[in-house]
C-alpha cells in the first residue's frame, strides 16, 4: 500500500462522519422537509450541543489517557449549583465563577490522584465521585431550583455574537484551543504517550502521575465550565442537570475516534461525534415523537462506537 494512502487514513474517520451527518441531513429534509428544517427543531438539535462539546472534549483527554470519567455529569451540576448559590447570596460574578471552577479542578485532581497514585480503577473512583457530587447537589438545594440570578450572569450564555449564541462560541473556542494545544504542548502531548503505553512512558522518563492528574483535572474543569454555561442559559441551578450526559460524552468521543484502549483521540472527530449523537437522537424523536428514547439511543450508540473501535484496534494488533 502506498504511503500516501496510509497517511490519509487517520483523517478518514472525520470525513466519514461528515458524510454520515450530511446524508442524515439530506434524508431528513427529504422525508420530513419543513418539520426538520424548522428553526425550533434545529435549535432542539443544538440545544445541548455546547455543553456536550465541552464534556466530550474533556472526555477525549481522559480516553487518550486510557481512562474514563463518569463524574462529569455530576461535576456539571455541582459546579452549577455552587456558582448559582454564591450568586444568589450576592457574591459578585467573577469570584463566584472562579470558586466554581476551582471546585471543578479539585474534584478532577482528587480523581487523578486516586487513579494515578493509589491505582484505583478509574471507573471506581469516578463512579464514587459521581455519586458524592450528585448527592451533594441534592443536599445543597434540597431538590429546589436556584433562581434569581443576576441578569449579567444570564447574559453570558444567552447573549450572541454575530447571531451565534455565546455558549456555542465559548464552547467552540475552548475546544478549538484545547484541540490545537493537545498536540502542541508538552503536558498534553504526554497524555498520548501515557495512554498508548504507560510502562514505556515511565521508561522514557515521562511523568505519568502528573499527566494523569492533569488530564482528569482538565476534564473536570471543562465539565465545570459547561455547568456555568448551562445555569446561565437556563437562568437557574438545578440538582438534576447533566444526568446521563457522561454517556453521551463517551459515545461522542469514541465515535469521533478516541480509543477505549488509550493513546488516540481526535478533537475534530469528537466534535463531529457530538453532532452525530445529537442528530441521531433528533431523528428518533422525529419519527417516534417521544424524547424518552434518547437514553436508550445513547446506550446503543455507545455500543456501536465501541464495536467500531474494536475494528480499528484489531488492525493495530495484527
Amino acid at each position: 500500500m502506498s504511503l500516501k494512502k496510509k497517511a490519509f487514513l487517520p483523517g478518514s474517520r472525520s470525513i466519514t462522519l461528515i458524510l454520515i451527518i450530511l446524508v442524515i441531513f439530506v434524508c431528513m429534509s427529504i422525508l420530513k422537509g419543513e418539520l426538520f428544517y424548522a428553526a425550533t427543531n434545529i435549535s432542539t438539535i443544538f440545544s445541548n450541543l455546547s455543553y456536550d462539546l465541552l464534556l466530550a472534549c474533556g472526555m477525549t483527554f481522559v480516553l487518550i489517557l486510557g481512562g474514563i470519567d463518569l463524574s462529569v455529569g455530576s461535576v456539571l451540576a455541582f459546579v452549577g449549583i455552587v456558582v448559582t448559590m454564591l450568586l444568589h447570596d450576592g457574591t459578585p460574578i467573577i469570584p463566584s465563577i472562579f470558586i466554581g471552577l476551582l471546585v471543578a479542578l479539585l474534584s478532577g485532581a482528587v480523581n487523578g490522584i486516586l487513579i494515578s497514585k493509589i491505582h484505583i480503577a478509574p471507573f471506581v473512583s469516578t463512579l464514587a465521585t459521581m455519586s458524592v457530587l450528585r448527592g451533594a447537589c441534592y443536599v445543597l438545594t434540597s431538590g429546589f431550583f436556584i433562581v434569581g440570578l443576576p441578569e449579567s450572569y444570564i447574559s453570558i450564555a444567552r447573549g450572541s455574537m454575530l447571531g451565534i449564541p455565546n455558549k456555542i462560541v465559548i464552547s467552540l473556542a475552548i475546544m478549538g484551543f484545547l484541540g490545537i494545544i493537545s498536540t502542541k504542548h508538552i503536558l498534553f502531548k504526554q497524555m498520548y504517550y501515557v495512554g498508548d503505553n504507560p510502562r514505556t512512558a515511565y521508561l522514557s522518563g515521562i511523568a505519568s502521575s502528573r499527566t494523569i492528574i492533569l488530564g482528569y483535572s482538565v476534564c473536570s474543569l471543562l465539565a465545570g465550565i459547561a455547568g456555568i454555561l448551562m445555569t446561565s442559559s437556563f437562568g437557574m441551578g438545578q440538582a438534576s442537570f447533566g444526568i446521563g450526559s457522561e454517556m453521551r460524552a463517551i459515545a461522542a468521543a469514541v465515535i469521533g475516534g478516541a480509543s477505549m484502549s488509550g493513546g488516540e483521540g481526535n478533537f475534530i472527530g469528537t466534535a463531529l461525534g457530538v453532532i452525530l449523537v445529537a442528530l441521531v437522537n433528533n431523528v428518533f424523536i422525529m419519527f417516534n415523537g417521544s424524547p424518552n428514547w434518547s437514553t436508550a439511543i445513547s446506550g446503543i450508540m455507545l455500543l456501536v462506537a465501541v464495536a467500531l473501535d474494536l475494528l480499528r484496534t484489531r488492525e493495530k494488533t495484527r
Binding site: K189, Y193, D196, N197, T200, S259
Partner: peptide, 15 residues
C-alpha cells in the same frame, strides 16, 4: 516496553 506502537514514528523518536 519499548515503543508506543499506536503512535507516529516521529512521536516515538522524540519520546
Amino acid at each position: 516496553l519499548g515503543l508506543f506502537i499506536g503512535m507516529d514514528v516521529k512521536d516515538n523518536i522524540v519520546a
